[in-house]
Amino acid sequence: MANSSGSSRNLTAADWGGFDDNMQAGAGAAVIDMENMDDTSGSSFEDMGEIHQRLKEEEEEGEGAPEEGEEDGAFLGMKGVKGQLGRQVADEMWQAGKRQASKAFNLYANIDILRPYFDVEPIQVRNRLLESMIPVKMISFPQKIAGELYGPLMLVFTMVAILLHGMKSSGTIIREGTLMGTAIGTCFGYWLGVSSFIYFVAYLCNAQITMLQTLSLLGYGLFGHCIVLFITYNIHFHSLFYIFWLCIGGLSTLRMVAVLLSRTVGHTQRLILCGTMAALHMLFLLYLHFAYHKVVEGILDTLDGQHIPGPIQRVARDLPLVPNAVLNATAQILLAQSR
């Protein structure tokens, strides 16, 4: 009796396994195959009938039962494994999804980790902004760098807004992507990328500076950029820009260079580190000004205006030349081969 009940359990498991298999096949097609579904249901009903009959037979003749049961078990084992595999895959998918969700939640919950870097008073921020324009001529003793991210982050966002304004007013056209994405990418890319690079160089040159301090230093250094860009995007005088570039941009660069100088030992190292920093910082301002300014607008217009007759037409004229050249080449090769 116990045996028969065991086999019946197996049989029901088989039924479920078979059903699972069919479901998987259906799911793979991404469209529910009605024929397949019908097959499944039909077969399952038949199976049910068979099971019923078999159970009755088993009850009637007790000796034949173990053999059949074993066979069924072996046969059903395979199907059971397949069903379990499907279940396992689904389980793993579920687990992965859960992990992702919990990671996102943890990120939000772990916002407290970042909170110390945003622990500032308005007056402190104002003072640091002003100090970012005042180079301190004290290089014998390491200068203090505030490890704080509120000011830099806000300056980067301000610069994004100013860049957007500059792009719009100069009529810049970006073929692939939006103005917004380009502005954000440029500003954050510069801030994070150059900070990492400077940190790397500082590591090579044995300067005493941490990543956080680099981010803060470079971030506050963008204050001068913001002022210069905001003024020169609205007032278009090249001489004015160059004066501002040298004075304001130069001051903020000098400030950073002085800080780095005070934290590095050795002339070569100082030269490498400060030269890299100053060059990158000043050239970035130059790039931002001229990339989204009226001068470039003219170039963009000539590039975009394909209806204007000019050098663009050369492309159209060049096109038929290419097959000619290819034909000539092939003809020559053929000639050479025939000889």
Binding site: V120, E121, P122, Y150, M154, F157, T158, A161, L164
Partner: peptide
């Protein structure tokens, strides 16, 4: 209360960009 200005600045920037 001591940090109200810091929280208001990004709001100001946000609406400034939109209004611009």
């Amino acid at each position: 209360p001591n940090r109200r200005a810091l929280a208001v600045y990004p709001i100001f920037l946000f609406y400034f960009v939109i209004s611009w």
